[in-house]
Amino acid sequence: MRIAFIVDPLDQLKAYKDSSVAMMRAAERHGHEAWALQVDSLAWSQEGGVRGQALRVHTRPDDHDWYRETGRESLALKDFDAVVMRKDPPFDVEYVTATWLLERAEAEGARIFNKPRALRDHSEKFATAEFPQFTVPALVTRDSHALQAFIDAQRDVVMKPLDGMGGSSIFRVHRNEPNRNVIIEVLTQLGQRTVMAQRFIPEISHGDKRILLINGKPVPYALARIPKAGETRGNLAVGGTGVAQELSPRDRQIAESLGPVLAARGLFLVGLDVIGDWLTEINVTSPTCMVEIQQQTGFDVAGAFITALEHACGS
């Protein structure tokens, strides 16, 4: 198979922990060709359809010098057996434009994972509202009075923008927080930006668990991202420590309930975030933690992804 990975610039990827790099390495282990594209090279024309500047990548085990470029050419996305969309947020107008281009490529015969329409229609934070049986009380609004009332009612909440990633701009706000007015003003940009507030979950001290779904089926291990001292965010990007562990019965209940629903929409790779017994986010743009899970458990998550991709493509 020829597999195209739409990723951020290769020299910016941290191979020692990057799931996209792990996927490329796994693709080559399975005997496939790995190609890399960037969204800024995607273009459509009536004559050529959707094309991109594609780099043939040969991966290496050295994380400091992890690839060699062995070819570069403009190729139609339909000429690949699979196209894996792994561009990191921000989910801005350029990201949306990329999904339009990818959807046009689908119409031309390309197989895109995750499906571009599903990516565009899915809010990673607000999507939890569809599954209230697995969530704590939450509010999505830009209205400061509503947010103030929610904080008063729940007493201890977490607030975050809907388009953030990696733990950025997440605030824990107690009922007696002296700066709560300022926090609301900053997060909502004085009422111009919609945010999410969720009741604080104390079990964050035991980790924010990342559960990976591959074509609707859960990986048997989660990565619990445990906050460093003085933090309430477990994200690895802000200093959290990842500890792999088997799924709990509740983890498996959540994963097995959501998996078929999300897979039916074309969300082939999903990262569920679960704190304690509660679902907090449903990540679909570029879910991570494959490398850490494999290093600690021996379970080859990236290899399982490539195997599932082979089956999906009939290879």
Rank of each mutant, 00 (worst) to 15 (best):
P132G: 00
V136H: 02
K115F: 00
K125H: 10
A129L: 11
P137E: 02
T135N: 03
V140Y: 02
F134S: 03
L101W: 01
P132R: 03
R117P: 05
G109C: 07
A110D: 12
S123Y: 07
F113W: 15
T141W: 11
A138S: 15
V140G: 02
F113N: 15
D121S: 11
R117Q: 13
R142E: 13
T135E: 03
F126Q: 12
R120A: 12
F134N: 09
P137L: 02
A110I: 08
T135W: 01
K125Q: 09
T141I: 04
D121K: 09
R111N: 07
E130I: 01
T128R: 03
H122Q: 12
E108C: 03
E103D: 13
H122S: 13
A129Y: 01
E103Y: 05
A129N: 02
K115A: 15
P116T: 11
Q133W: 00
E124Y: 12
R142V: 05
A118M: 13
T135Y: 01
P132Y: 03
K125S: 09
A110G: 09
E106D: 11
Q133M: 11
A138N: 09
A129F: 00
R117K: 11
G109F: 05
S123L: 10
T141E: 08
N114A: 14
V140I: 05
L101E: 07
R104H: 04
I112K: 09
I112A: 12
A105Y: 02
A129G: 02
L101P: 06
E124I: 04
K125F: 04
R111P: 03
A118R: 12
P116A: 15
L119S: 14
R142Y: 09
A138H: 05
P116Y: 06
R120L: 08
F131Y: 14
A127I: 06
T128H: 00
P116H: 10
A127M: 06
A129S: 11
T128P: 00
E130W: 07
A110T: 02
E108L: 01
E103M: 08
E106I: 04
A127Q: 13
F131A: 05
E106F: 09
V136Y: 01
A129I: 02
L101K: 06
F131K: 01
T141P: 09
A118N: 13
T135L: 00
R142C: 10
V140Q: 04
F126S: 11
L119I: 14
S123A: 13
F113E: 15
L101S: 04
D121L: 11
K115N: 13
L119R: 08
K115M: 10
H122W: 13
R111Q: 12
A138M: 04
E103W: 04
A105C: 08
R120V: 07
